Amino acid sequence: MVGTTTTETVHSRTLRLTEPHVVLEQDIHRSVPEGYVVVEPTLASICHADLRYFGGTRKPEVLAKKLPMALLHEGIGRIVGGESRRLAYSQKVVIVPYMAGKLLQDPGPAHSCPACRGEIADNYCSHSKFLGSGTDGIAQSRLVIPEQCAIPIPASIPDDIAVLTELCSVSYRALRPVAGLLSQARIAVFGDGPVGYLTAAMLHHAFGVGSDRLTVFGAIREKLDQFTFARTEMVQQYDFQSGDKVDIVVECTGGNFSESAINQGIDLLAAGGHLIAMGVSEDKVPINTRDVLEKGLTLYGSSRSSIPDFEEVLRVMEQKDCQDTLKLLIPDSFTVVAKAEDFVGAMESALAHKGWKKTYLDFHW
């Protein structure tokens, strides 16, 4: 059974969010079960999900259930402990935040969930844990995770590109169900932020979709100008009723813009088309079900990825042209984090200045 034998114990300086805007450093003793490794996080990026916890925009009952908790789920680190035949000491790895139940325990066939039994996708396991969402995330000096959740970074991929693996893997995972259609399909991506950019980048670099079949819709021209590998359109000026129809729409807006993006996507889709929802909204979003029915559309959501998605994305990231595309999201400078106050400052700044580029945290433990 995985995790039944403890091989060592480590002390982790854990930067825990205890309530919105308040982070305390706690020294936590973490056991290292058999089959696990110890990772020292070195570089991480801030996600909008982290900001929703930090800024207190999640519902009070959610915050009460999940806090205190260390944030962050996008990051890389180096191996500093655990017994592994596959990973060497000090080896650089990408951290997979999604830990399926079968990696955490051995539930047995009678007690396993549909995902554990292979009946549904592996990223919907009811026994899973996700870093920075219900369990302590990457903002700690010693992260103890299943060995399979630490994936070696190829030497050809720079650290500042590798940090984007998790975000790219989420986009890649969302596209997998329609992979068989992508060689000919006409595709529209809604969203000119990082999620929209990386989704369009995966369509282009992982699935070979060119600008003749890929259109990105956004609201800010300066952001859309970064999408050099796709056609771009301003949502304020486009006639979605009369425009050219597409086969697949990927909604990457979230928040208050989800409603308009989803319904514009429904207008844009041809009969039998697919609508993929990736944007997260705290509120329920009304959609045009009449046209969903009349057109026979398929609607599904996707937000988390698993180990195979990371492995595929890292192979794509070895391409020089893919790295050149992703570089546009790398910030001009990284924020050094050595203590709780540094982390709070970085989060407050990211919350106040939601720019197009990512915010990178350079950990100095």
Rank of each mutant, 00 (worst) to 15 (best):
D291M: 09
P286Q: 09
Q236G: 10
M234P: 11
S305E: 02
T289D: 10
D309K: 07
S258T: 00
D244R: 14
D309I: 08
E294A: 13
P308Q: 06
V249I: 09
N263P: 01
I276E: 02
V249N: 09
C322T: 06
V246T: 08
D291N: 15
D239W: 05
G296V: 15
G255R: 12
D291Y: 01
L297G: 03
T289K: 13
I307D: 01
D239P: 08
A261T: 03
E233F: 00
I248W: 04
S258K: 00
E318K: 12
K295H: 15
G301E: 10
N288S: 07
L268F: 07
D321C: 09
E311Y: 04
F240H: 00
G273K: 02
V313D: 05
C252H: 12
G243C: 05
N263V: 01
G243Q: 06
K295F: 14
S302A: 14
S306A: 06
F257L: 10
D324G: 08
T253P: 10
T289P: 07
S303P: 01
L275H: 01
I266H: 05
R304D: 00
D309S: 12
D309N: 10
E312T: 03
D244F: 00
R304H: 03
L275E: 03
L299E: 00
S260D: 01
R290P: 00
D244E: 03
V285H: 04
D309R: 02
D324I: 12
L275I: 14
H274P: 05
T232Y: 13
E318A: 09
G279Q: 03
Q241E: 07
G272F: 13
